[in-house]
Computed example of a mutant assay.
Amino acid sequence: MAKKEKQQRISQERRLTEKQERFCQFYLDTDGNASEAYRMAYDTSNMQPETIWSNASRLLASSKVATRINEIRAERAARSRIEREKVEQVLMDIVTADPNDLYIVDAKTGRIKMKTPSQLPKRMRNALKKIKNNKGVVEYELNGRVEAARLLGSWNGWDAPKEVNVNNTGNMTNEIRIGFGDDQD
């Protein structure tokens, strides 16, 4: 029981006021501009800029506020990671889209019929750019695979050079030779 009471007491000590909480949120929203975050969280209409700066600095120096800012930053980073994973999955769906998923072959007649959007697998719906329905004739347009692959590659560093070989062995001042070995002039 004493442990639970201690945790509750610590929780109450660490709890921020509503304005302090808003300051923490705004601090991160304004890319670390403490004065602007203070103006957004508090009524500063009768304050001098120096007072705002001083109060914002004092808030940032508070261990409770600093701890909360770090917590919010970690929460946002985790959310961003999840959102990025979702976007990367959609891009992978575009890259790996199989046009065969767009139609079915009627077993009786052997005719090809386009699937309705609700019949398409989710990964194929993710890959669709546009659907046209012209009097019952359905046309699908897929997003560009190459562009999706480029975006995935740049996000994951796949397009970065693996190694850069730079030698400065020339006789001229500020000469940089790229890709030449020591034995070549």
Rank of each mutant, 00 (worst) to 15 (best):
K6T: 09
Q8G: 04
S11A: 15
E13D: 09
R15M: 13
R15E: 13
L16W: 07
T30K: 07
D31L: 07
A34M: 05
R39G: 03
M40H: 09
Y42M: 14
D43H: 04
M47G: 06
M47N: 11
Q48F: 08
T51A: 09
I52T: 02
S54C: 09
N55W: 01
A56M: 04
V65W: 02
R68Y: 02
N70T: 04
E75Q: 15
R76W: 00
R76L: 03
A77F: 01
R79Q: 13
E83F: 09
V87G: 06
V87S: 10
E88K: 06
L91T: 06
I94F: 07
T96A: 11
T96Y: 14
A97Q: 04
P99Y: 01
D101I: 07
Y103H: 15
I104C: 12
G110M: 03
R111E: 15
K113Q: 14
K113E: 15
K115P: 08
S118K: 10
Q119V: 04
L120E: 01
L120M: 02
P121Q: 00
R123Y: 13
R125W: 03
L128D: 01
L128Q: 01
K130I: 01
I131W: 03
I131V: 15
K132E: 14
N134L: 11
V137C: 08
V138S: 06
R145K: 15
E147W: 08
E147H: 08
A148E: 03
A149K: 07
L151G: 04
D159S: 08
P161C: 06
K162D: 05
G170H: 03
M172I: 12
T173W: 10
R177K: 09
G179H: 04
D183N: 13
D185T: 09
